[in-house]
Design a protein around this nucleic acid. Structure first.
Lengths: 236, 236
DNA sequence: ATTAAGCGGAGGTGGCACCTCCGCTTGGTT
DNA sequence: AACCAAGCGGAGGTGCCACCTCCGCTTAAT
């Protein structure tokens, strides 16, 4: 299964198979916790194997990522399909946003994958093309009922995901479920009309927690990403 | 003024003064456009001077940043004060969120500064401590009127900023004013009750634009930040 | 017992940001 | 006009870190 899709040339030796599984499991865990920036060296160490062992199974980091995230993204399509079964369009939309973000909440690497790391023909963007029509349908239905504000479009959904992801990235270490609080607020903003606000079931961050999240020593280590050098106004 | 706060040891030579101003102006522009990750080498080149010239005026990058962002952050305090003058609490809150984010929209570096790069006693976190009570007041007033949902707290404000910043970071190159669309939605989510949804005055991204924003080749270059190596559960 | 498959992890490679240093240039002064 | 300290440029030093390779040793399988 790894190492491109060459047919099962021959079964691996038992220890090798065990190591492979260890690597996959550890990689999932590490990328989920630390994001795609985690190095294969880190993963090897965490899995208790040498780097060489990782590189024998996967020619490079990208190949490992592909192996890991291939199906994960299909999950979103399944959630959208299940959402379309919901009794009302509005419920369907809520269901989708809730579940899709719950999946992303577990996995920082997946978030980065969805936000920006796609490259051309891989499953990621392909699956996302499948997702598009389903989401458009969810929106259409909810609007037809008059429940969803009429000026919302399909392209708003990924940008809602961008907002919620921001919360997760900043806060998951301190309060992993906090994103639900803000999704509730956003959903209240999406309703065409409503009376009372939906009660927030997740408590806000305390002053002390917010200090920890925004304060000194937070991520951005070394100022992280240094901004595209290539000008952002034109594209080849 | 630069180089710590030693008294005006002696006026600079005319050409040196000109270069200093060039450096400051360019640094503002570059950090605003590319974020704090921009290098002093980049800034020097953009300003048409050598790196050495930059380092003669500022001992290191941090010093330059301090010189640039000192006042910028006070601006937010002033906005909050002006917001407290508004006729209603709700209008005040809207005014504050609108204006405060408008300032951040112009400046990616400022955003990063506010989100995470503070270190202990500098003006940034100090000013932010000033901001706290003002924001708390804005919220109290808007709730007293019954306009703002009663379960919102002061710590929600910076997290709304996190969400909106996410939009700006992803989209400012493609559609700089897009954040207003999502702020409108969030504000509609913050109202205690409402009838119709506030019309969105900013158009959504087109399919083609969203492709450009999320698609292949986006930021995250090299996967940027590689996730705290130090465990996030304890702090010394 | 034999042997190919597998293993580990030191180290090579490349890239990048921060900053220093020193020989040349130039504004200001006398 | 002549002098010289202040200023300048930018090549290059330093440190760091991620990716990946290589080869002598170990071990499962026959």
């Amino acid at each position: 299964m790894p190492w491109s899709d060459t047919p099962p040339s021959r079964p691996l030796r038992r220890d090798a198979e065990r190591n492979l599984q260890r690597i996959l499991a550890t990689a999932r865990r590490v990328f989920a916790a630390r994001g795609l920036g985690a190095t294969l060296d880190d993963i090897a160490a965490a899995a208790g194997v040498g780097v060489g062992t990782v590189y024998r199974r996967f020619p490079n980091k990208k190949a490992l990522l592909k192996a890991l995230f291939g199906n994960k993204i299909r999950e979103l399509v399944e959630i959208a399909q299940e959402a379309l079964q919901q009794p009302s369009g509005w419920q369907g939309l809520c269901f989708f946003l809730e579940r899709a973000h719950a999946v992303q909440a577990q996995d920082r690497g997946l978030r980065q994958m969805l936000m920006c790391d796609r490259d051309e023909g891989d499953q990621a963007s392909q699956t996302q093309r499948e997702l598009g029509p389903l989401v458009a349908d969810l929106i259409r239905r909810a609007q037809a009922e008059g429940a969803l504000r009429s000026d919302l479009t399909a392209t708003d959904i990924p940008l809602i995901a961008v907002m919620i992801s921001g919360i997760m990235d900043q806060c998951s270490a301190v309060k992993p479920e906090l994103w639900r609080r803000y999704l509730t607020i956003i959903l209240d903003g999406l309703r065409a009309t409503r009376d009372a606000a939906t009660p927030l079931t997740v408590d806000p961050l305390t002053e002390e927690q917010i200090e920890r999240v925004m304060g000194q020593g937070a991520p951005c280590a070394g100022h992280g990403d240094r901004g595209a050098k290539t000008d952002t106004t034109s594209r080849p």
